[in-house]
Amino acid sequence: LRTVEMKKGPTDSLGISIAGGVGSPLGDVPIFIAMMHPTGVAAQTQKLRVGDRIVTICGTSTEGMTHTQAVNLLKNASGSIEMQV
């Protein structure tokens, strides 16, 4: 596991798309980074990659989380965001 910290302002975009989660079209698979926009906050860290499994978001485990719950957690996060992948 590695921990990645990002700074995100209220109008900034992380610039990632995620897939997976409980009840997702892919089945109940762990949440992972499906796409990254090169100008997004996540890409700027140069520490995240497409395919990385997201284990925690700001200390909250993604295990058993639906896709929608994970998306909302990421969208609503601002300031210092910590992810374990």
Rank of each mutant, 00 (worst) to 15 (best):
F32I: 06
K7V: 14
S61Q: 09
L14G: 02
G27N: 06
G9F: 04
S78F: 06
L74P: 00
L14P: 02
C58E: 11
P10V: 11
G9E: 09
K47E: 12
E82R: 13
M36E: 05
K8G: 07
T62Y: 02
R49E: 12
I33D: 05
G20F: 04
Q44E: 08
N72F: 07
L1C: 09
A77T: 13
G15M: 01
A34I: 04
K75M: 12
T39I: 03
E5R: 14
G21H: 04
L73H: 08
S78H: 12
P25E: 13
A70W: 00
H37D: 15
K47N: 10
S24V: 00
A34G: 11
I81Q: 06
G59Q: 05
M65P: 01
V29Y: 08
M83E: 03
T60G: 03
A34V: 07
L26T: 10
G64H: 12
V22N: 05
R53G: 05
H67A: 15
L26Q: 14
D52E: 04
G15W: 04
A34R: 11
I16S: 00
M65E: 01
G51A: 03
A77V: 12
S17E: 15
N72A: 13
G64F: 07
P25H: 10
R2H: 11
G9R: 10
L74D: 00
Q84E: 13
M65T: 03
L74Y: 08
K8T: 10
I18A: 01
T68G: 13
K7C: 13
T66W: 02
R2K: 11
G51W: 04
V55F: 08
V85Y: 00
Q46F: 05
S80G: 08
V4I: 13
G51I: 00
G27D: 05
M65D: 03
D12I: 00
G27Q: 03
Q84I: 10
G15R: 02
K8S: 08
M36W: 01
V50L: 07
G20K: 02
T45Y: 05
I57N: 01
G9T: 09
V41S: 08
N76F: 11
M65L: 11
A43T: 04
I57S: 04
I33S: 04
T3H: 09
T66G: 06
V50M: 06
T60A: 11
L1T: 10
G51D: 05
I18L: 14
K7G: 04
S80N: 14
V85Q: 00
V55E: 12
I16D: 03
A19I: 09
P10S: 09
D28L: 02
K7Q: 14
L73Q: 07
M6D: 06
Q84W: 05
R49S: 14
T11K: 15
S17M: 13
V85H: 00
V85K: 00
Q69S: 08
V29H: 06
D12F: 02
S78E: 14
V29L: 09
I31K: 04
T11P: 06
G64I: 00
V71S: 14
Q44A: 13
V85G: 03
V85E: 00
D52Y: 04
M83R: 04
H37W: 06
T11L: 13
H67W: 10
G27W: 03
P10A: 12
H37L: 09
